[in-house]
Design a binder for these strands. Structure first.
Length: 189
DNA sequence: AGTTCGATCGCCT
DNA sequence: GGCGATCGAACTG
């Protein structure tokens, strides 16, 4: 069970976003299958945090691929992205939803009140909370750890659906959201 | 230094 | 479907 190599991420964000579907995301023994992603581009994408250049917050997005970009949003939630493209070029993939695989007890504890398995990580703020991912993980190398991504042990067949991205106002018409069709852990239809 | 607003979520009606 | 929570980053002046 080896992590995806850095070259996997050294490609356009939209392509990486599609191919991350079905992969396994893990952190400290808690893991889930990626069922929903969004690509954020470097240019011509007003919705991307990197759209207005390098700042203290966005510097990781302009760095080498295969690193985590974690940001704090709405005063409450952390969101996880994986940096793509070569160093110097912005681009990343937001992980939006997971199908819980292991450590469900810990996920449920972290998420609070008892709830259905499908609701433990079916959103970008929920999955970071379920896995214990916080702003302190900003900049970590996901080809190493503690956050890792690897291929599923079994070949899986699934259909990929595409839509516009959720919760943005700029560049809202770009079809850069990808999800596994009919999966119950996707955040929205 | 003050203001605005956001790649969200859960609770309310 | 609507809204409040909660706070830092980025922008304005």
């Amino acid at each position: 069970m080896s992590s995806l190599s850095r070259s996997f991420y050294l490609r356009p964000a939209a392509q990486v976003a599609r191919e991350l579907l079905g992969k396994i995301l893990a952190c400290e023994g808690v893991s889930g299958r990626i069922v929903e992603t969004e690509a954020y581009l470097g240019e011509d994408d007003g919705a991307a945090h990197s759209a207005r250049g390098i700042t203290p917050r966005t510097r990781v997005i302009f760095g080498p691929p295969g690193y985590a970009y974690v940001y704090f949003i709405y005063g409450m939630y952390d969101c996880l992205n994986i940096v793509c493209e070569p160093e110097g070029i912005a681009g990343c993939v937001l992980i939006r939803a997971l199908e819980p695989l292991s450590g469900l007890d810990q996920m449920r504890t972290r998420r609070g009140s008892a709830r259905r398995d499908e609701d433990l990580a079916n959103g970008p703020g929920k999955l970071t909370r379920a896995l214990g991912i916080k702003i302190a993980h900003n900049g970590v190398d996901v080809t190493k750890g503690p956050i890792t991504i690897h291929a599923s042990e079994h070949a899986e067949q699934f259909e990929i659906a595409t839509s516009t991205r959720i919760g943005i106002t700029k560049s809202a018409d770009l079809p850069l959201r990808f999800f596994i069709k009919d999966n119950p852990c996707v955040s929205r239809r």
